[in-house]
Simulated scan of single mutants.
Amino acid sequence: MRLTNPRRRRGPSRRTWAGPGVSRALGLAFGFAADRVLGDPQRFHPVAGFGQAAARLERPLYADSRASGAAYTTLLVGATAAAGLLAERATRRHPVLHTAVTAAATWTVLGARSLEREAEAMAGLLEEKDIPAARDRLSHLCARDASALEADELARATVESVAENTSDACVAPLLWGGALGVPGLLAYRAVNTLDAMVGYRSPKYVNFGWASARLDDVVNLVPARVCAALTGVAAGQARESVRVWRRDAGKHPSPNAGPVEAAYAGALGLTLGGTNSYGTYAENRGTLGDGPTPTVADVRRTATLARRVGVAAAVLAAVVGVCNGRGRGWG
């Protein structure tokens, strides 16, 4: 005669379902929804606070050497990851709190809605033929020298920036959140922010920013390719997107922006790339795609595609979160 307790036999499966993976997935979904509805926090943005702290720390640590830049990057990313790990461990036995903390972190690090708003603002200015205002506005999207750019070049810069930043501001943080939870979300945003601050090939940062730029390349290797794949699916042009991605991505100097921009070029039927000026230096980004170069009308098309890619990435990240938390009960 077997003496078993049916209630105990059912217990593990119930705990598994309600484990940290589910609360992580819910937090990612709620955070993504908050970004879609609210955009970036308007006051006391934690990412802006991190940027200010990084700028203050740069002053005493700066030296024209890779070693100094590596120490700077390690300190800032390490501290951010440690804070995320403490938050994760403090809440992972409390499902509602864990969901709330994950949602808050997700909302904080995502920039998809703000990116879309910038694209819409650029589209409006270009449609109104307000080129001086559009040149000024481009600085919200990228660091290119826009002083001599006309409407179609401004449109190209916007399309390329939206494509690249869809990976950086949406797909990558969601995937790292699904894989590692709050530490993944916060550490990824720290890496990406430092790359935006010091990861340039300018004389000042070519050495000091080297570690930040290389670390950003590493953490984006997988997300960028996932973003490229989702782009073709979201556009209903998977075959063409993959074809252009495989053929042209290597022409781009960035190992991660190349696949994403090439996938967007194939999905939208455009040709992207060319020589871009960044003030103190110029960069040839190759030619990606087979169609016409972007015009003003393509800016809104790109924003719509980026929104669809973001939704697909949120679903994928939630699935990753559930799978990573499977078997980890709250007990």
Rank of each mutant, 00 (worst) to 15 (best):
R137V: 00
S139M: 11
T106V: 00
L86V: 13
T102W: 07
E150S: 11
A121V: 12
H140V: 06
A134K: 00
A155I: 02
A157Y: 05
R135L: 03
R93F: 05
T166P: 06
S114F: 13
D152C: 03
N165L: 01
D145S: 02
A90Q: 14
E153V: 02
R113L: 05
R137G: 03
G181Y: 10
L126K: 02
D145Q: 07
H140K: 15
P183R: 08
T166S: 11
C170G: 12
A143W: 11
T108P: 06
R89K: 12
H140T: 15
V171T: 04
R92I: 12
V101A: 15
L141M: 12
L175M: 01
A146W: 01
V77A: 13
S147A: 15
L138I: 15
E120M: 12
R135H: 09
D168I: 02
E160R: 07
A83G: 13
S139C: 08
G111N: 04
P183T: 04
L185F: 00
R89H: 15
T108Q: 02
R89M: 13
P132I: 10
V162W: 04
A148W: 11
L85I: 11
N165I: 07
A172Y: 08
A179S: 01
K129M: 12
V171Q: 07
V182R: 07
V77R: 12
A143Y: 10
A83I: 14
N165T: 03
C142T: 09
A179R: 11
R144W: 00
R144K: 15
N165F: 06
L125A: 03
A155M: 07
L115P: 10
A100K: 08
E153H: 07
V109P: 08
A179N: 04
A169C: 05
L154K: 05
G78F: 02
D145I: 06
V182S: 05
L185R: 06
S167F: 05
T80A: 15
R117G: 12
G124F: 05
A187E: 06
L97P: 05
A143S: 13
H98S: 06
D145A: 07
L180N: 04
G177P: 08
D152I: 01
T158I: 07
T99R: 10
A121C: 09
P132T: 03
L125P: 01
A83F: 11
R144I: 02
V171W: 03
R156Q: 14
A134N: 03
L180M: 13
V77Y: 11
A134L: 04
A143T: 15
G111T: 02
A143M: 12
V77C: 13
L141P: 08
A82K: 09
A172P: 07
A123G: 13
L115G: 11
T91E: 10
R89W: 13
A163N: 01
H98C: 05
E128P: 09
W176F: 11
S114K: 14
